[in-house]
Amino acid sequence: MSAQTFFIGFFGLAAVWFGIVVFRTFSMVRSALALLFSQTALGAMFLSMQAEFLGVLQIMMMATEMSIMAIFMVMFMMDPGGLGEMDMTHQKRLSLSAGIVSFVAAVAVAVFVDWGPVAHTAPDAAQQTVDLGLELLGRSMLIFETAGVTILTAMIAATAVAIQPATWRSKHEH
């Protein structure tokens, strides 16, 4: 077994394990941190697969995203520390069945499909970044620009939804 295979398996296992921990702990802050570790392990897995740019991007993005998520968890949960051991789940059996069925189906597809010849080498990190940059500003420019505009729209929409309505303000001020 090569070192690359070992690290892909190790970080993959870590990502799945921390993903499971997200829903097993009662503490919501620990849930957010477990999700952060899961996503970081995924970033390390990308690095093991020689996708350097995506690996670094994943780790940087998720570190920020999950820190914000942890703050929201503390703001909105009734029991963020988890000391009350509140059960905040429903339809557990159905959810578990759906999760297992989708996992088995996806693994079956992965195992039984003939994926064709596998490439053993990938372009080096610098070449990958050059290629991706040319792709983003060339053939895929419209998709890239659409993604940018969609994020802007989402930011405006999220602010519009979250802003205090004037009726609410007047009701609570008087």
Binding site: G19, V22, F23, L96, G99, F103, A106, V107, A110
Partner: peptide
């Protein structure tokens, strides 16, 4: 596949 399954459960 495992991450997708855990995500659906959650």
């Amino acid at each position: 596949a495992a991450l997708f399954g855990v995500g659906i459960y959650g």
